[in-house]
Computed example of a mutant assay.
Amino acid sequence: MSLEQEQRTLDRRQRELTDLQKKLAREQSKLTAAETKANAAQTAAAKARTESTRSSKLRLYQSALRDKERAQKEIASLQGKIAVKQKEVNTATAKVGRERQRIENAAAKKRKQDALQLNRAMGSMNRTIEDHATRLETLENMPEKVTVLYLGTSPEDEVRLRIEAEARDIHEAIRKSDNPQCVAFNDRWAVRQSDLLQVLNETNPDIVHFSGHGAADGSIVLEDQFGNSVLLDKERLSVVVGAAAKHVRLIVFNACYSDEEADKILRHVDATIGMTNSISDAAAKAFAAQLYSSIGFGLDLQTAFNQARAAIALASPEEFDTPRLRVREGVEAETMVFVG
């Protein structure tokens, strides 16, 4: 039964007990009155001077004794009933107590569960707030327009590369993205070592993209004044980047073996993308076009890189694992977004 039902049963038992106790009190009063009456009649009979008076008092005495006997029997009966009723009251009281305790325990358990749920909800809310704050900070620090500096070289004394086709594909991919107006694409051709500081100062880029040949030691191939190849190692390149990279966050080396010694460049920028092996024209073009298309759609760098690798898987499956993304310690590619 419910607590309400148990309480009604207890209340009824207590009322019944109270009624029996009142009846017992009345019968005890009757017993006292009968005893007083019998004693008075007995005394009067002993003092009577006439036989008729004595007989009258004795009859009164006998009547009082009968009243006393009836009262005693009723008292004994009521005392038995009261004892039974008291047990019923005790049992009902215990049931009410157990039901109240059960309800209190259930309520305490519910409060504990609610507190745990609230703590979990607050924890989730705090994490959401922190995530939103991180995203908001990223958005606040995000430039209104991201500038890409494309540096293309294909010296006369090297195998000819179709870097013009790669640049054209990147242009088209950006144009078809969600935010083409937010990506400024600047291309420079036949780049010499002496040109680097000049073009970096002119464009003040967020992303620098090298496209051309790369040497096995990680050096990139530029051109001299006669159009022939000249190597620029990562040590010297890091000095140039460190001197001019005011806003550069990402450098893409779309050249063979360009992942070598990338840690030297990571001293100055947040992330680099390089090639761990030789890479074909087809794979390089597919990778670059998809990378900037994804950036133009507002995707984070990790997702953009993954999609660019997927484009290689379609164009040249055996070169899928050639690109490698590196980020500086403390930087997460998943939070690097160039276009909002």
Rank of each mutant, 00 (worst) to 15 (best):
M122H: 00
F287C: 01
E172C: 00
A45M: 04
D206P: 10
Y257K: 11
F305I: 03
S211V: 03
L60W: 02
K87M: 07
E319P: 01
L20C: 07
Q7H: 07
L197C: 09
A282M: 10
K234Y: 02
V208G: 09
E140D: 03
T53R: 12
A255I: 01
T147V: 09
K109E: 15
F287G: 00
N119Y: 05
T9L: 14
Q28H: 05
R54H: 11
A262P: 05
S55H: 08
R324M: 12
A271I: 07
L78N: 12
S278Q: 07
N39A: 09
L17N: 06
R59P: 00
T335Y: 01
K68M: 05
I220K: 00
E334L: 07
M1D: 07
S177W: 10
L24S: 10
E69G: 02
S63H: 06
R13V: 03
C182R: 15
E4Y: 09
A38S: 07
I129V: 11
A245R: 15
A315Q: 12
A92E: 05
I129L: 11
E318R: 14
D11S: 12
R15S: 11
T9F: 14
F253P: 06
A107P: 04
A308H: 02
K234G: 02
M1N: 00
Y150E: 07
A245Q: 12
G298C: 10
D263Q: 14
V159T: 07
V191Y: 02
N228A: 10
A121D: 13
E4S: 14
A121N: 09
C182V: 08
F287A: 00
F226P: 01
I82S: 14
Q42K: 08
D321V: 10
E137C: 00
L139N: 01
N141I: 01
S293L: 02
K68V: 00
H209M: 02
R100G: 08
N201R: 15
Q307W: 07
R175Q: 14
L118E: 15
T203Y: 04
A216L: 05
T272S: 11
A33F: 09
A115N: 03
I207F: 04
Q101M: 02
A92S: 08
N277Q: 15
K85H: 08
V331D: 06
L250K: 00
S29M: 13
E16P: 09
T93V: 03
V252L: 11
I279F: 05
K57E: 14
L299G: 01
R98K: 13
V96D: 03
S63I: 10
